[in-house]
């Protein structure tokens, strides 16, 4: 029974299938909104789905310089870890698995898709990919500091005098005391987190690693067919996972009493967060340089998050 239930959680909801479908939908929303902001009609909402299926139908070329196992295995590892993260994030009050300190588990699981991208790109043997993975790794180091600070601030706020590294505890605290976002000491942290999300997903101003015009899509350069499709799916899923993480950290306290309604509210909030921090920034900015990106995250964004952490530690 417990195995069956875990199987359902992992494969269907809120694991692989739900995350994949909704992630693709969210990517469609993102593209549509960006198009509307630029006064275009834009692709249909199902466009990422078409892209994914088309890529499944294409030939997968493995260049002779590539290491076949790493080249094909990397996207799958990324996919699995993304499906797993969703199990730790409370989807509208429903957490598939919770343990103590699952925030750190999330923090680590969320680096795995990035690592998968790096290993895959690196194993393709292309020098463009070499530059791409270097940028991807620097980006990762850049956003990790503010991300960690935000998580610690939230944990401290939700825990009070004891430690609360658990997402469920954060959700319960918010259900009791109102949303984390409306605590004024947490506002800098929320802003920092809003800036961490696009870097983690790798959308427009922070997509230095996959810059298609300068380094030919970086780590993805040699990928084609279904392996590429998996990577595209991964980045769509990451969009959902990160916006979901933001929602459950800062807007997690909304309880209507019905699980279905809670889930719908969660989904709507995810869409809002995506539009706010990915589409809008995407539509109005140009790509950063890698050293500027690093500096931006370690000074401005980390500063905001640290500000929150200190306020929380002062008991505010």
């Amino acid at each position: 029974m417990i195995i069956l239930r875990s199987l359902f959680y992992i494969l269907i909801f809120p694991g692989a299938l739900f995350t994949a479908c909704f992630g693709l939908f969210l990517a469609g929303v993102d593209r549509k909104v960006v198009a509307r902001m630029q006064h275009r009609i834009g692709p249909p909402l199902r466009q990422p789905m078409y892209d994914f299926f088309k890529l499944l139908g294409k030939e997968t070329i493995i260049p002779h310089a590539a290491n076949k196992i790493a080249f094909l295995g990397a996207p799958i590892i990324g996919f699995v870890s993304l499906a797993l993260i969703m199990l730790f994030i409370p989807v509208g009050g429903l957490t598939a698995f919770s343990g103590n300190a699952d925030m750190i588990v999330i923090l680590y699981l969320i680096t795995i898709p990035g690592v998968a991208l790096i290993v895959g790109g690196s194993s393709s043997g292309s020098p463009y990919a070499g530059i791409g993975i270097s940028r991807e790794m620097v980006t990762m180091m850049a956003y990790e500091l503010p991300f960690v600070l935000v998580l610690l601030a939230v944990a401290r706020k939700a825990g009070g005098s004891e430690l609360a590294f658990s997402m469920e505890q954060v959700a319960n605290w918010q259900a009791a005391n109102g949303n984390m976002l409306f605590q004024w000491s947490m506002i800098p942290a929320a802003i920092a987190m809003l800036l961490v999300v696009p870097a983690e997903v790798g959308t427009q101003p922070f997509d230095v690693a996959e810059a298609e015009t300068e380094i030919c899509e970086g780590p993805l350069i040699e990928y084609s067919g279904s392996a590429l499709g998996m990577f595209k799916l991964n980045s769509a899923m990451k969009m959902f996972v990160m916006s979901g993480l933001f929602v459950s950290l800062f807007l997690g306290g909304i309880r209507t009493g019905f699980v279905v309604c809670d889930v719908i509210v969660f989904i709507l909030l995810c869409i809002v967060v995506t539009i706010l921090c990915m589409s809008t920034i995407h539509a109005v900015t140009a790509r950063l340089k890698i050293e500027h990106l690093f500096k931006f995250y370690w000074t401005f964004v980390a500063g905001m998050a640290l500000c929150s952490l200190i306020l929380v530690w002062c008991g505010l």
């Binding site: 030939e59 997968t60 076949k68 799958i76 996919f79 279904s226 998996m230």
Partner: peptide, 23 residues
């Protein structure tokens, strides 16, 4: 671990199911 393996196998089938070729 069991579930990790299940997903991995499923995904691997998907990926190797489509036509791939190497030099």
């Amino acid at each position: 671990l069991i579930l990790f393996v299940i997903i991995f196998v499923a995904a691997f089938l998907v990926i190797t199911g489509s036509k791939s070729s190497r030099g």
